[in-house]
Design a protein around this nucleic acid. Structure first.
Lengths: 216, 216
DNA sequence: CGTCTTCTTGAATTCCTTCAATACATGTGG
DNA sequence: CCACATGTATTGAAGGAATTCAAGAAGACG
């Protein structure tokens, strides 16, 4: 998102904003609270998630450098429907919502960029929805791993996903129990599709994973 | 959506458009095709759905009078990610995409209304997503029934949902097998939460259904 | 009526969850 | 640097929820 904004617009936004540093694990915003700002991720990785009564965490979305966060609540005039926290040390640009809305109102190009962003999110959500409803947990796990790789890229070996998640977080992404995620990771490992070492996951056979992700 | 457009903008759109009548069961657009128009539902009810390899249908969205359809593909510059067909005889206003995009570009108010619409859709999709991932099929069925009632309203008795869906379509909304949907409808009936007669469903205990929809 | 679709029910099976116990890792204070 | 505490990961076993397949009943429609 950040890279699609022209310099002029960006400096308008920046002049009203400040940067904020977030330690790994700390919260950027809380579900249910009213938004006062939107956030551009300058550096780092964050997760957007909801927590149910039983304390299980469902991860709705992931954010990396360049991504915009918190706009859904601001645009809809709602409270936050998710919480956001840092997966690693991160820096965000805090843009007061008035500044954001002003720019939106006066800059048709920016406004169209936001529409494109919303559209892309919606397509992504619909796809995810169709998948959750009819794919097996196994297929969804394979898909999640590929999405993680696409979103965060690989380390220098070209195979290890460049993000560190707990098994619980992986389960929260897939929408399953932690134990099931562990067992299925193990199964994919036995099939030679991936290798794990601690929290690092190496995708050894991307084509095989893609095939697995398309099973029902 | 239609009701939030000012008359002036509406007549601009209308002047470039034409109406189309759709028989129950006929298609408005097909997944994978390129969009040439967006559609305002003037009368009737439609479903938006994807079909998987096994021929199972997952319903992504429902549309009633006043709703806008097909804008996701047009705004994203994509092909349609869903198919749309009429649940009953319907009439739509066919707006060529150029006309739609022109108005969007020149009318900031309309543009903001579209942003609000996208935002609302996104919130809806996220909520649905979180629910699909962690609720039981039983809870999701109860929720779907309440959503249907909210979307399409009741018949004159104030209890019968004003839309006719096959069990297969209900299963497609919930994201389950047709047989499971039938069994769970039966269970909810035994508990006195609803009554069925053919394809008509009467919600007898909305509070109870709400409670059921919030179970895990 | 007869045909076709939709609905319903039964039974077997698969997949996933839950609970419980154990190993491993990480970090902290002594 | 060790010992302990805490959080994370793993594995087993039992149970439950949902799917699948199969077959029959009920409706819809020409």
């Amino acid at each position: 998102m950040l890279d699609r904004i022209k310099p002029e617009t960006l400096s308008r936004l920046r002049s009203a904003s400040h940067e904020q540093w977030l330690q790994k694990g700390s919260m950027l915003f809380h579900e249910g609270k009213n938004p006062s700002d939107v956030y551009f991720v300058l550096k780092g990785k964050l997760k957007l998630y909801t927590t149910d009564q039983q304390g299980r965490e469902q991860i709705i979305h992931l954010a990396a450098g360049g991504d915009l966060m918190g706009y859904r609540a601001v645009l809809g005039g709602d409270s936050f429907s998710c919480s956001a926290s840092a997966l690693e040390d991160s820096t965000v640009l805090v843009v007061p919502k008035e500044a954001f809305l002003n720019v939106l109102d006066s800059d048709a190009e920016f406004s169209f960029a936001v529409i494109r962003l919303l559209t892309a999110e919606l397509r992504h959500a619909e796809h995810h929805l169709a998948g959750l409803a009819r794919k097996s947990v196994r297929a969804r796990l394979a898909e999640v791993l590929l999405i993680l790789a696409e979103k965060f890229g690989y380390e220098t070996d070209g195979e290890t996903i460049a993000v560190t998640l707990t098994r619980e977080e992986i389960a929260g992404l897939v929408g399953t129990a932690t134990e099931t995620a562990i067992r299925l990771l193990h199964a994919l490992k036995e099939e030679g599709l991936l290798a794990t070492s601690g929290k690092k996951i190496r995708l050894l056979d991307k084509v095989g994973l893609r095939r697995t992700s398309e099973d029902l």
